[in-house]
């Protein structure tokens, strides 16, 4: 075993930066959530009072539950749309003797590389009734009447933004599931084929169950990303998350609580409380993944 000096040399820098700028702020945020800021800027310990306020005080609980519910919808839409499309694309890409595989893969993954902010603006322009591109395109396929200012309507704004986010990140489920499909030994599908099972059945009954661990992984990555999302809403709708807070999610709610907006004063301690709740929500998801999903969805060693 090497000396502590050597270990310190190797691990020290990474540990120091990680501890000071990641671990400490996270812990300190949780601690701060148990304090209140008075007029002079001093912190006073108030226990769980911030959380009580958050959950019961009407001026807080309304926006909070709204943001949490919207966030759940945001996540549900991701799951419902990105996983089936991701599996479909990955399945098609993994077909043997497909020409142009590399080009498809590269191009479909492309939006994932862009900044969320840029993607938000791109779609804001495209969906803008002022420009009329979407209306024109829909008109070309006979759906011109169907167009509406989706991003501006309370009923459709959240759905639209969720789909924009799915559009951007579809490359991740596609690539990960594709890689998992490639890892399945060819013998398995060969054996099934010899037994007279069709391609579609092989995919459904043999391959899909084997890539479920990857789907579970994609799901938890999406969950963590979604419950900590901010940029897309901020870019498209601003911190106000309009119309009428219909696109407000935890990230934007956290931002407004911390920095304030319009008439409301920003509050670091209340912000810390919201961040702590987000931490809890994410932790619950990760725990479910680690202890339920990952065990149930067995990993198969080849």
């Amino acid at each position: 075993m090497p000396g502590w000096a050597l270990l310190g040399l190797f691990i020290g820098p990474a540990f120091a930066i990680y501890a000071v700028f990641s671990v400490y702020p996270l812990l300190s945020t949780i601690v701060l959530s148990a304090y209140d800021t008075d007029a002079s800027g001093q912190h006073a310990f108030i226990g769980l009072q911030n959380f009580v306020t958050l959950l019961t005080d009407e001026s807080w609980s309304g926006p909070f539950w709204n943001a949490l519910a919207n966030n759940a919808v945001f996540f549900a839409i991701h799951m419902a749309v990105q996983n089936p499309i991701g599996i479909l694309l990955a399945g098609l890409l993994s077909l043997p003797s497909l020409t142009g595989r590399h080009a498809y893969r590269t191009l479909i993954f492309l939006p994932t590389m862009l900044s969320v902010v840029i993607v938000g603006f791109i779609w804001q322009l495209i969906l803008s009734p002022l420009w009329g591109v979407s209306e024109g395109l829909l008109g070309a396929i006979g759906l011109g009447d169907w167009f509406a200012p989706w991003l501006g309507q309370e009923e459709t704004a959240l759905l639209t933004i969720s789909l924009i986010s799915v559009w951007q990140f579809i490359g991740i489920p596609m690539i990960l599931i594709y890689a998992a499909l490639l890892n399945i030994p060819e013998d398995l599908s060969d054996a099934a084929q010899v037994d007279g099972i069709g391609h579609l059945r092989i995919f459904w009954h043999v391959k899909l169950p084997l890539v479920m661990p990857t789907v579970a992984l994609v799901s938890i990555l999406t969950y963590v990303g979604n419950f900590n999302a901010f940029d897309i809403i901020y870019a498209v709708k601003g911190a106000i998350a309009g119309p009428n807070f219909s696109t407000d999610i935890m990230g934007t709610f956290f931002y407004r609580t911390f920095f304030g907006f319009q008439l409301q004063q920003g509050s670091p301690t209340m912000g810390a409380a919201v961040a702590t709740v987000m931490f809890g929500v994410i932790l619950v998801g990760v725990m479910i993944y680690l202890f339920a999903l990952q065990r149930r969805v067995q990993r198969h060693a080849f």
Binding site: Y18, S22, Y24, L26, N228, L283
Partner: peptide, 12 residues
């Protein structure tokens, strides 16, 4: 740190 987003520590 792989799973917990550093953003949650923003206040601090």
């Amino acid at each position: 740190g792989i799973m917990v987003p550093i953003r949650l520590g923003t206040v601090s």
